[in-house]
Amino acid sequence: MTIGDFVAKAAKPLPVIVLADVSGSMAQDGKIEALNDALKSMVSSFAEEGRLNAEIQLGLITFGMTVRDHLPLTPAHKIDGIQRLDANGPTPMGAAFDRVTQLLEDKEIIPSRAYRPVVILLSDGHPTDDMRGPFERLASSERASKATRLSLSIGSDANEAVLRDFSNDPEAPLFFAHDAKDIRNFFRAVTMSVCARSRSAKPNSPVKIEYRPGDDDDDLLELDL
């Protein structure tokens, strides 16, 4: 045994956890299809990212008919693919908050050497369970409260107050998606921001999210300016 055998061989993790509303209303207007496409692109971009300064890990918690770990937190380069999401059922956002709090507090899954996690909530509706208590637990618990929280309000029926409270990034109190296309735009912007963080010498520092709702995929030149 040499001394190097007792030193980590992987870069520090940068966990990204998506909390996705997959209630019945997400089946309308192509939203669930857009979310499936956006997640697929996100996985593929994260997987291509070098792991020099940080190893991006992705987890997906869905809330609809049930709350489940659709994708347990996994290094992006090891994700084979994400099973497509189906939309049905109510919006148990409170139970999803409890699940993400549990995950963020688990030092076996997210060790202390990890960079500050990013939690992304997206929803197009109103919570159908009690979410106040779970949210307070998330926002006040020792470790979970330190995660960067972003939220995306989809369409006009989303509960903006809840989503605005969820976000703790003063630069980005709440993002809006007017249609399915904007879900893709938002995920593209978040992906670029996370990748920039992972390449940075200081992956804990926030990187601005350059989200432009209304952008058209076909019109983008995809220049890294």
């Binding site: 997210i110 990890a114 960079y115 470790r143």
Partner: peptide, 10 residues
Amino acid sequence: ECEDERFSNE
């Protein structure tokens, strides 16, 4: 050691 309720560089 530092208390464990934190993430890297905090």
